[in-house]
Computed example of a mutant assay.
Amino acid sequence: MLSSVSARAGTRKVILDDDGFALAQWMVIKAPDVQVLGVTTVTGDLWQKEATANALRGVEIAGRPDLPVYGGATYPLVNTEAQTERWEALYGKLVWKGVWMKHWVEPTRQALPPYHGPDVVPDLPQGNPTLEARPGRAADFLIEMVHSYPHQVSIIATGPLTNLALAQRLDPEFAGLAKELVYMGGSLNPRQTRPDEVAHQFAREFLNAPRREFNIRFDPEAASIVLRAPWARITMIPVDPSTDTELTPALLKRLSASATPVARALRTRPTGFPLWDEIAAGVWLDPGIVTRKTDLFIDVNTQFSGSYGDILSWTPGYEPGLGERRNIVVQKIDVKRLEDLMTQRVAAPQKPVSGRPLPG
């Protein structure tokens, strides 16, 4: 498979791998001195086909119809909806199950996405895309890009890690040829820091199960494969720093104040969510956002037990030595600096395509 993506000197090359498409991806696409090689989609919060439609519409809104979008994995490697329901019968209800979510266990402010099958693509709030995904699989595209630009490609993964696991199994050189992996996933020891009801509701996710997080729990086997792969550098964005953040109405008003297409698209976005993926994008764009970090060896529990999908971690020297990799774990961030960066990127003019200026 040959790619039409061409290299530009002096730019940071990146692939965005996600189960949706929103502000985090726009932050990277609109950043200066960044070359987005492509977008790959995976099932998680949305089924892969719906996530792909979101990504296609997202690159249209960003004024970047040239960016290739590749559909990826529809199902986790091992985990299934039936297995998840059996797990809940044995060990208790999960707060969030992504595409397998039929109802909330208790009342919550967040709306419940409609439950449907993997081939259903509902009409999108921002309009349906006119673009089509590129032929081929996300895993093959990922492999092609790291071979085309060895040790130059960063991967920002903000959904389940199924595509990356498939790429690693198809090509054992995959992770070693990448520059780095930045992933939003996992949970270590988060603390509710905001006093409002939104923070209280999201604390349900970690209050009694502090090592559980959806992106990892949805496909634990894939996560373990990826986290044991020979990346040169891995940065983990767990739930922990997100508890200081929230997309409040005031922040959304600030983000959507400009006249850019991205800002206009944000005006209907629901508020009341932590900035999970935005932190991952922000840390990659501006490492100075990080105010506290540590090094840990990370893996995932893949045993079918009450801790299935939970994060395992060790301080250096205590790891079992079965392929675990050292992660740079982000613990705290400068929230104001992140919000300022988000606002700057949303308000920035559209980046030109092939030297042609774009409006707004």
Rank of each mutant, 00 (worst) to 15 (best):
D244H: 13
R169K: 15
P32H: 04
P220Q: 08
L341Y: 09
F21V: 03
P270N: 06
V14G: 05
E81G: 08
T294W: 01
V146S: 04
E88H: 05
N189I: 11
A259D: 15
A89H: 11
L170W: 15
D334A: 01
V353A: 10
D19I: 06
A259Y: 13
N215F: 06
I279N: 00
R254H: 10
R211E: 07
R8T: 12
E180S: 08
V34R: 00
V59I: 14
T162K: 03
R212K: 12
L247A: 02
P118R: 08
Q35V: 07
K93D: 09
N128Y: 10
L94K: 10
K253G: 13
H200M: 14
K293M: 14
P241A: 03
N215G: 06
V283G: 01
D119F: 06
A82T: 13
V198A: 15
V95Q: 11
D66E: 13
A259V: 13
P125E: 06
P113D: 02
P68R: 08
P32C: 01
A24V: 03
R8L: 12
L255W: 04
G58F: 01
G136E: 00
Q35R: 11
G71L: 06
T260G: 04
T41F: 05
K332V: 07
D140V: 10
E205D: 13
D171Q: 07
L275K: 00
R326V: 08
P238E: 04
Y183G: 03
R191S: 13
A133Y: 07
T158S: 07
P238M: 04
L251V: 09
P359G: 07
L112A: 09
A22F: 12
K97I: 11
F206D: 04
P230Y: 00
W100S: 08
Q110N: 12
G63F: 04
P320A: 10
A232K: 09
L266I: 10
Q35L: 15
A178V: 02
D140K: 13
L131K: 05
A223G: 10
A348I: 05
W96A: 09
L56V: 10
E213P: 09
Q35M: 08
G38V: 01
N128V: 08
F202N: 10
V283Q: 03
A55G: 08
L341V: 05
Q48A: 12
L67D: 05
P76D: 00
D340N: 13
R191I: 14
D240W: 03
V59W: 01
Q152N: 02
R169F: 12
A175Q: 00
A24C: 11
V120Q: 06
D19G: 14
A55E: 04
P359M: 02
S242C: 07
G58M: 06
S4T: 14
V300W: 01
A22R: 13
P359T: 13
V14D: 01
I61S: 08
W284L: 01
S313T: 10
D17W: 02
T40N: 09
I311W: 00
I237S: 03
R233L: 01
A7E: 13
F304Y: 13
A178T: 11
I29D: 00
D196M: 11
T235I: 02
